[in-house]
Amino acid sequence: MGRAHRLSRALVASVPLVVLGVIFLYPFALLAVEAFARPGGGYGFGTFAAILAGHAFRDALFATLRIALTATATCLVLGSALALLIRFVAFPGARALGRLVDVYLAFPSFLVALSLTFLYGNSGLVRSLWTSALGLPAVDASRSFLYGFWGVVLAEVTYYTPFVMRPVLAALEVIDRAQLEVASGLGERPWGVLRRVVFPELVPALIAGGSLCLLLTMNEFGIILVMGVKDVITLPMMIYGKAIDEFDYPAASAVAICNVALSLGLNFTYRQSLERAPR
């Protein structure tokens, strides 16, 4: 192998890295430039300082975290409950649900928001049922819960629960049924078997599924946009608003830098927890 040969191989190997550098790293470098640029020339933390001083950013950060944490906690509870039911109680539709979990990743999240609008929206199915079919007095004319915090949480729970179910189902699959039998043979009640034998085996899957869920709910945008939520502004929504509605690219870039740092930090923790998880 000559020098020239090795050089050409290195060049060939670096092509995808160069491409990714141009279409991914370069944009983020320019994003940083935009965020740090001072209007008069030069660089500084001016834009950041202005953003961080305002209430909008802090509100958006808290809204993002609140929604993501609430949705993730609900996903964890609902996802493990459904996974346990699929595994231990064969109910009609359980198999279909188990398979649905695998393709869920591929469908766009914002469609859930649209569906829920028809279901629970201002003129949705549930409200109409309430007033017309059941003959009950109309709920006060205010907007449905759907267009606030709980609507976003509901939509995110609907969409992201499978992301918890998948690893939990996989973990349940490898639990030795003899262990469950021995445990109940030793006198442990079903709830105790669940708590003392099944749950410890699920912990790594719950950590993995929960972290992924948290990351994705923090980054979620389509659901909130399509649902038309006005009073809940998350970080992605704030970026969108600053850039598209206000044309304030420096501010949008600064918020985006903060959001990216938050997400990458979370992702790093997630990867670490995956590596530390046994088996």
């Binding site: 030795d176 003899a178 262990q179 039998e181 021995v182 043979g185 006198g187 003392r196 034998v197 410890p200």
Partner: peptide, 18 residues
């Protein structure tokens, strides 16, 4: 089973790994 109080030993031992 949990109300019967019988000791059970199976082929693959089924020890609780955790």
């Amino acid at each position: 089973p949990h109300a019967r109080g019988l000791g059970l030993v199976v082929q693959n031992y089924a020890l609780f790994p955790h």
